[in-house]
Design a protein around this nucleic acid. Structure first.
Lengths: 215, 215
DNA sequence: CATTTTGCGTACCGTACGGTACGGTTCGCA
DNA sequence: TGCGAACCGTACCGTACGGTACGCAAAATG
């Protein structure tokens, strides 16, 4: 029975059975592969070897299933801690570059793109419920990491900015530009990632030009 | 033939009857109001007082209708010319700020958001056909304007950059950041526009800090 | 005026979806 | 061993959509 904790992958993080987590995993697979059209209750039940009745018992309705998928997926991401001690200009730059790379990785991920597409499609016909959820669970995490890193840089007198939020917005824009939108519109994600990853260092350099406290 | 038929709202631009343009206008209204779910062939026919049979005769099928909507809408936008003569640092900055404001206006427009949502939703289940179309018709226009402005600035020794594309990417990221995505996800567009419009000047200042040839 | 074209309104068909109901089966538990 | 809960597989229902066919009026065409 030692395999118990193997695939928690955020199932327990949302208070779900391991079985339910596996179902959500299959549902995410369907969504990635075929888009919203492929995310039918019957399809999920078939792919996950469960009954539709169980789906409705566990998640309420289709929207509940989708919400559960979002929180489940968000439970996977693990934010990395940065210790503020001994932060030099060089190590800060390294951390920023690593952060930029991780940001690109997250945004260009299959599941992330599929969930964003789903939430965007739902945003028109419904209140921004799913969109808000995705924003809260997804961006908040990586945004916290960025804020911590930026604050640490400021505390070490290596960065200067008014608010960490605004500075993060600048960094985000420099790194991402319109890459995310283009991927959402269907442009080849891996190709775009290859195009943008080398720019990460330049983006960080630009950010340091704007907010570095050294000059 | 002067500029008599200035803007038949882009109907003639796509080789369409005025009647067909009116139909597309109603279809865009439905899309803006109710999202993709509201864009049914029966709904469009009812809203536009035409028959479904005419819709299929004119546009082929539902995808053809959507494509026609995109090109029709794209035909509306008018790009502003910038004369490169007598470009001072101050006038360049003014032009850049105006461009940033127009960019925000375009991205936060109802119809633009609705069409982007539609294309993104379609991107998952189909090739990036609509996405590419939207990219070509929409971004190319405003991108050309930006490229012309940037090249003029370089010619006047006011800007320095490797390629106009990369510089435009930087400017775009500084101005837009994640505003577009947040609006697509359903966040209140007008509120976000109010939040980002004041940042346009700061974004342009940052861009000039990075690419201005004055220092 | 006769005829062809165009297009509106409606009815129709096949399909697919969300959601519900039900019989049968496994499994934990006393 | 008997019982109840959970759950699977499937069948079913109402609805709504994309697309097609038909009948008829109005306009265009000769």
């Amino acid at each position: 029975m030692q395999i118990a904790e193997q695939a928690k992958t955020g199932a327990a993080a949302a208070g779900l059975t391991e079985r339910q987590g596996a179902v959500l995993e299959r549902a995410l697979g369907l969504l990635v592969e075929g888009g919203e059209r492929a995310l039918t209750t019957a399809g999920v039940a078939r792919a996950a070897n469960c009954s539709k009745e169980s789906l409705y018992k566990w998640f309420g309705d289709r929207d509940g299933l989708i919400s559960a998928m979002i929180t489940y997926q968000a439970g996977k991401v693990r934010t990395v801690e940065v210790d503020a001690r001994a932060l030099t200009a060089e190590s800060l730059r390294k951390h920023l570059v690593a952060f930029a790379g991780d940001l690109i990785d997250v945004l260009s991920g299959d599941v992330s793109l599929a969930l964003n597409r789903l939430a965007i499609g739902q945003a028109s016909r419904e209140g921004a419920g799913l969109g808000r959820l995705l924003q809260e669970r997804g961006r908040r995490q990586i945004g916290k990491r960025a804020a911590a890193l930026l604050e640490a840089g400021r505390k070490a007198k290596l960065l200067a900015f008014d608010t960490a939020d605004a500075a993060y917005g600048t960094l985000y824009g420099l790194v991402v530009s319109d890459m995310h939108l283009r991927m959402l519109l269907g442009e080849d994600a891996s190709a775009l990632k290859k195009e943008f990853s080398p720019r990460a260092e330049k983006a960080v350099d630009a950010f340091l030009t704007l907010h570095g406290a050294k000059g």
